[in-house]
Nucleic acid binder design. Sequence first.
DNA 1: CATAAAATCTACTGATTTAGTAGAATTTAC
DNA 2: GTAAATTCTACTAAATCAGTAGATTTTATG
Lengths: 143, 143
Amino acid sequence: MKLSKRGEYGLRAMIFLAVHAGESALFPIGVIAERENIPERFLEQILLALKNAGLLQSKKGAAGGYSLARPAEKITLGEIERVLDGPLAPIRCVSQMAYQPCDCPDEAACGLRMAMFEVRAAVAGVLDRTSLADVAGQVRAVR
Amino acid sequence: MKLSKRGEYGLRAMIFLAVHAGESALFPIGVIAERENIPERFLEQILLALKNAGLLQSKKGAAGGYSLARPAEKITLGEIERVLDGPLAPIRCVSQMAYQPCDCPDEAACGLRMAMFEVRAAVAGVLDRTSLADVAGQVRAVR
DNA sequence: CATAAAATCTACTGATTTAGTAGAATTTAC
DNA sequence: GTAAATTCTACTAAATCAGTAGATTTTATG
């Protein structure tokens, strides 16, 4: 049930952009990496993936950088996590986005499946209902 | 956020024992493995770990086998999962059982931490509140 | 127009974790 | 005494993870 470094770094970068959106229109990778203690070349890959998924915008060249592709209210943590680490479901046979049958004798009477269905719902409930704006709001409230 | 095969097999075996507890006092590994489609030598290791953690009882020798160490009402899925895959928290800095600081600049104002705290609570909420008896009841209701 | 700062694309690599296998010892019912 | 079972320890192949590296393209600015 662990979050990968890829997921961790990507979420941190997206939250960073949401929190600091007012300060600058665009943030280069190097700035995000330095402020969040993330290896720069690794973050590079991650942001590229998020851009190809339509969650980030970028501008090349000098004075270029990244920004959120949509308003922070319209991007959820669930979307980000799915791009970076795949389906949220702990087991494929309860995945909404990427269902696959498991090898249990009878799926309809599978106790594990019933339990994992609830786990998936609980995780997706949090992640799909929490937007970057929600998180940014919480962060600003603390500082 | 994925469940390992180790966790999957272990949970399946424990649920099997809870569901079929009435039929026999003891089930040998081979029987569980066959009925649940689990590699026998692998399951062997898993059940041993669950026994050493106090969740299973065993009897050696001919006519030996495994059974739950406590009534099914008193064993939760969360306990089992922690034995097999470690802490439930997606990130160590929100783990109740195995906290460790992360390397974000300011833990108190870390948006990722706030969000993952909720995810951990959601997962633990399901797993720590669901007992093997609950699952067994659901399975019996379907058949 | 040259230069520097930035993203982009593709490939590679070392370390760790996962998912098992294997062998030998021990215990117990019959 | 033998067969059926758990127990203990070690090993290994494959996959995944975390990160590096090199070369290219784009763009602002002086």
